[in-house]
Structure formats: structure tokens, C-alpha cells
Design a binder for these strands. Structure first.
Lengths: 211, 211
DNA sequence: GGTTGAATACTGCCCTGTGCAGTATTCAGC
DNA sequence: GCTGAATACTGCACAGGGCAGTATTCAACC
């Protein structure tokens, strides 16, 4: 019997539902869109289409560019049925993996300077990611192929999540730096009020008055 | 030479820096605190302390409860130095894995009802997690052992992130349901304005009484 | 006093997934 | 004609997940 499919298999199946792809194209596409909330190494993406073919959910066609061979994958009707069936199952909520937060959590084993540097790095990375997403949205206005335009609405739901998430990470990192700046030392926060820190309202996103 | 340590090794090392633990206790503790931003299977946590001992960062002491043996691990001075050194390296930003979002992203292959159910499930899960975190914060007020009280400030930074994150997920899921409710069909959003959806300000957490 | 079920304290196994190195061809720019 | 980037993959070692299985201890209940 064929190995049971994973969520990654279904993610690839979903992409195949929009058009035919080579695995190389699939990998690029995952990096640009799906990868934001379902990050997978390119290496795995090369295996998945084969499993879909074995399960009867996709077909593989050998083509070639000059003398170089390439395999193009396409979804089958059975594959579309499987995808619809899969959409009936609930689906796991967000799972976060945040190495820098581990360093924040154990910051009292180091120095205030190390904590500050860690938080600054998180902030800078979050800003990079916000910029990357902004660029993607800007790109949407022009380059709108047919198959993309038809999926703009679902795309927008995911994009909105990702942008707000990245903005939130940046805001948190700024807030945490401000808090830590008031601590006498990394192992003793002095009169700092942790209850207040947990209860204070989330700051509204700063409005840019210019422009 | 011993295998190079991973971030998971360092996370366990960080816990050992606060006190001595059996692996079983370590696993419970990870589930309650670290696991929110560094989720690891219990199975793996049973291997890590051994690697730390092999590297000279921890010691293992064989004890027993009645006839049942147990191994208690403790950090060494060399282990503390390694932990401080590790805090100098930047640390990776948040990585999100969100299966339900994959289903949202490919919702146009199914039905509006499936999309609604997926989003509702995400919302309910996020609310569960907010409640679990609220209970944890409430617990902090009473049960404050010495080793916990000393780490309350760094704990608060992480807790604040986690709570706001979970609240944000819930808010997004509600927002997405409202958007999808205006779509004539799952593959055609009608006159729905995707630019507006991406640009509109994030809603404050207050409740909408309209209905 | 005996049973039962939860908590404690692990180990083995198989699979998924990551990261890196390596191979070979095509194509655009100089 | 040369070079470097893009295309199109494969192999390998190791981290990590999930589940099943083993055995003891302890408190609750009858």
C-alpha cells in the first residue's frame, strides 16, 4: 500500500490544482507564497509530486528543454476530489518556533546587552519581512496572470494574516526593548511591574501622518 | 568528536541553569512554558540531557524512588559558560507553521461552508489557548517558588508575546469570516475589495455590538 | 486487603523533514 | 567563446515527531 499522504502532500496538491508545474517551479512558488505559513525545504518538495502520482492524484509528463529533461506534474480528477475531501478536516492552528524567544526566556543567564541585541535583531528581521510582503502586495497590482487573479481573494486573507503577524512581532520587540531598558540588571528588574506589563493594552500601530 | 549541539540542546541547558531536573520533569516543564515558542516532542527531550553530559555541559546522577531508578541532571560551570556564549548569537526569528491557513489558501477548491468551518475552528482554538495563558498568569500570582519568582520578568516578556499572538490569531479568524461572508461563492468574491481588505487598519480588540 | 487508574520514568522504531553537497544542462550577457 | 546565473534534479546524514511498549509507584476506592 502507498504511504499515507501528509499535509505537505496536500499543499503541493493544492498548487497543482491551479496549474501544471515542474518541481523546480513548485519550489520557487512555495518560497514566495505558501512558504510563509507552510515552510518546507526544497528537497522535500522534489519528493512529494512523485507520491501524489503513486496515489493517483497527479500525473507526470516527461518533457525536455533542449537536451535537458524535466518532469511536469498535473492534478487528476481523483486528486481534486481528495483535495475537496481534505478541506473538510479542521486543520491545525498556528505552531510557532521562535529561537530568539528562547534566548529572551533565558536572558537572565547572560547580560542586558545580549538581551538588547537579540531583541534588536528580531525587530530588524520583522521589518525586513514586512518590507518583503509590502513589495509582494505592490507586485499584485501589476503582474496579474489569470490564474493568480482568480485566487486573489483567498490570497488576501492569508496575506493580511502574515502582514499583521510580522508587524506585531516588530511591535513586540520594540516594546520588550523599552521594558528591559528600565531594568537595573538582567537578573533583577528592580521595581518593574510585571502585572502591568502583562495587562497594559496593546499599542495601536503608529499612524504615519506624512504622505 | 561529539555531535554539535542544537538549539533544542541549548533550550534544555537553559532549564538546567535554573535547577536540577529529571527528564520527565523537564518534559512537563517544556509543555508548560518553553513549548509555546519552542515545541519539541517529549521523545526528543529524553535524548538531549545525555548529549549535554557527553559535551561536559551537565552531569547525570542516578537516584531512585523506591525500587524505580531515575536520572537527575544538573548544569556544570562549563555548561553555564556555553549558555552565555550562545546568548551572543542572534537567534532565528519566528517560524510559523499553520496547516489551517493552507486550507484557507486553497479554499477556492472547496466550498464556502468548508472555509467558514476552518476559520471557526481556528478561532475556537485560539480562544482555548488564550484561556490557557490567562490561567497560567493567574497561577503566577499565588504559586511563586523562589526559582520562578527570580525569572518572572523574562517570563513576562515571553508571555506577553504569546498572549497577544493568540489574541491576534482569533481576531484575524473573526475578520476573515466576516470577509468571506460577503462573497457570493468561494471561487468568486464578487465586488469584494481586496485592496481595502489589505489596507484597512487593524481593528482594536473591542467587541462589535452590531447585529 | 486488593484492584484500578493515573503519574512517573523511560526505550525502540519508523517515518517526515532539513541542510548541504554534488551533478549536469541551458541561457543571457559580455 | 566564456562566465555566471537559472534550471532540474539526487544522495546522504542527522534532527525531530508520533506512537507503541515496558515497568514501577502511589493514591483512591471498595
Amino acid at each position: 500500500m502507498p504511504a499515507p499522504l501528509t499535509s505537505t502532500s496536500r499543499a503541493v496538491l493544492g498548487l497543482l490544482a491551479t496549474r501544471r508545474w515542474t518541481t523546480y517551479e513548485l519550489a520557487k512558488q512555495v518560497r514566495r507564497s505558501l512558504g510563509w505559513f507552510w515552510p518546507r525545504a526544497e528537497r522535500k518538495l522534489y519528493d512529494e509530486p512523485r507520491r501524489l502520482v503513486a496515489a493517483g492524484f497527479a500525473t507526470a509528463t516527461d518533457e525536455h528543454t533542449g537536451r535537458r529533461p524535466r518532469t511536469v506534474y498535473a492534478i487528476t480528477p481523483k486528486g481534486r476530489r481528495e483535495l475537496r475531501r481534505w478541506l473538510d478536516e479542521p486543520g491545525a492552528g498556528p505552531i510557532l518556533e521562535f529561537e530568539a524567544m528562547v534566548k529572551v526566556f533565558f536572558a537572565d543567564c547572560g547580560t542586558l546587552e545580549q538581551l538588547r541585541a537579540t531583541l534588536e535583531h528580531v525587530e530588524a528581521e520583522a521589518e525586513d519581512r514586512v518590507r518583503a510582503l509590502d513589495a509582494m502586495v505592490a507586485g499584485h497590482h501589476e503582474a496579474a496572470t489569470d490564474e493568480f487573479a482568480a485566487r486573489r481573494h483567498v490570497n488576501a486573507l492569508a496575506l493580511r494574516f502574515q502582514m499583521d503577524h510580522e508587524r506585531f512581532v516588530g511591535e513586540w520587540a520594540r516594546w520588550a526593548q523599552e521594558q528591559a531598558a528600565t531594568w537595573p540588571s538582567v537578573s533583577d528588574p528592580g521595581p518593574w511591574d510585571w502585572k502591568q506589563a502583562l495587562a497594559a493594552p496593546r499599542r495601536p500601530a503608529e499612524v504615519d501622518p506624512g504622505g
